[in-house]
Amino acid sequence: MTIALETKGLVKRFGGLQATDNVSFQLQQGARHALIGPNGAGKTTFINLLTGVIKPTAGQIFLEGQDITGLRPELRVQRGLARTFQINQLFPAMTPLETIGLAVSERTGGGRDWWRVTGSRREIIDEIVEIAQRFRLTDVLDEKTSNLAYGKQRLLEIAVAFACRPRVLLLDEPAAGVPEAERHELLATVAALPRDVSVLLIEHDMDLVFSFADRITVMVNGALFTEGTVEEVSTDPRVRAVYLGESVDE
């Protein structure tokens, strides 16, 4: 299979703390891949390294075979790597229509005149409508973001990332804080994205992980602990020991 995203020997040290320890990882093209691990395992640090928020101490990052280790975050987005955050980064006074329009216009060169470009170009309007439909936002397009239900806010944040037309989408706990009734809708929407978008999901809710992912990587203490299919990871006694403190027979 084609590799969409890859790391080789990725290390990050903060002083004497080694946050990631020689992480070599592959995300296959079209995958629905989950990254799990206990608190403090280094998952968010790993995502921050992938997206260029922080620089690695050692190792390399490849996007579709191209070395992006030294690229700034915005250049990685332009190359097709987008993300969401644990805490949403939305503008509360803007509507979903404006927010998605800003993202589409920025990508297509509208820049600071995004409001004028959005209203004057039919293709941008059509793309906003298509994204809103895909992420179930058509009924709230003209509502202030601050007034949206939290599940809708999380869908909007993913929609903004999708508006960048990524080929790799990194989702950092997208269901955190979302009511139970809305979580499965959120992940079902992500799972239904076109397969030319490869998705790496960080999530603590194991039910969501098992229903979403076709492959799971477990990280512990900054290092890759194990990787496999949902069935392999869910039945691995070592993973249960990490999460539940159960003993493992020698």
Rank of each mutant, 00 (worst) to 15 (best):
T20M: 10
S211Y: 03
P38R: 14
S247F: 07
R112I: 11
W115D: 06
G59M: 13
V209M: 15
E157H: 10
T2C: 05
L171F: 13
T118I: 01
R238G: 06
D113Q: 14
A176W: 10
L75I: 10
L71T: 01
R122M: 14
P96C: 01
G15R: 02
R32I: 11
D214P: 12
I128E: 00
S105W: 00
G65K: 10
G151K: 10
V178P: 02
R83C: 03
Q29K: 06
M1I: 07
G9N: 13
I100W: 03
A163S: 13
A31R: 02
E246Q: 13
A188M: 13
K55L: 08
D205V: 14
D21R: 01
F135K: 02
V77R: 00
G80Q: 04
L90T: 03
T229F: 13
Q26N: 09
L81Y: 05
N48L: 04
E130H: 15
L156D: 03
A161V: 04
P194Q: 05
C164M: 15
V140F: 08
A161Y: 07
P179D: 10
G245K: 07
A82G: 10
R136T: 10
Q26D: 06
A241K: 07
F210L: 11
V209I: 14
E98C: 09
D113C: 11
R183C: 01
E231Q: 15
F25A: 02
L17I: 07
A191W: 13
V209Q: 11
I3M: 09
F210S: 00
G15A: 05
F14I: 02
T51F: 08
M206P: 07
T95G: 02
I124W: 09
R72I: 06
Q78E: 08
F46A: 01
D214A: 14
P96G: 05
S120L: 13
I47H: 07
V239R: 00
A163N: 06
T118V: 09
A19G: 00
D139T: 15
I216D: 02
T51I: 12
W114F: 11
H184C: 07
Q18E: 11
E64N: 15
T108Y: 10
I36E: 03
E6N: 01
G151D: 06
F225G: 00
G15L: 02
L170K: 02
L141Q: 04
G111F: 03
I124P: 00
E143H: 14
L90C: 11
N88T: 15
V197Q: 01
A188L: 15
E106F: 02
T138W: 07
I216K: 06
L186Y: 12
E64A: 10
A34C: 13
L200E: 02
G52V: 00
T226I: 01
L97H: 11
V53G: 00
L63F: 08
T145F: 03
Q26M: 09
T44Q: 10
V220R: 09
D196Q: 11
A163L: 07
L187K: 05
K144W: 06
S24N: 08
T51E: 04
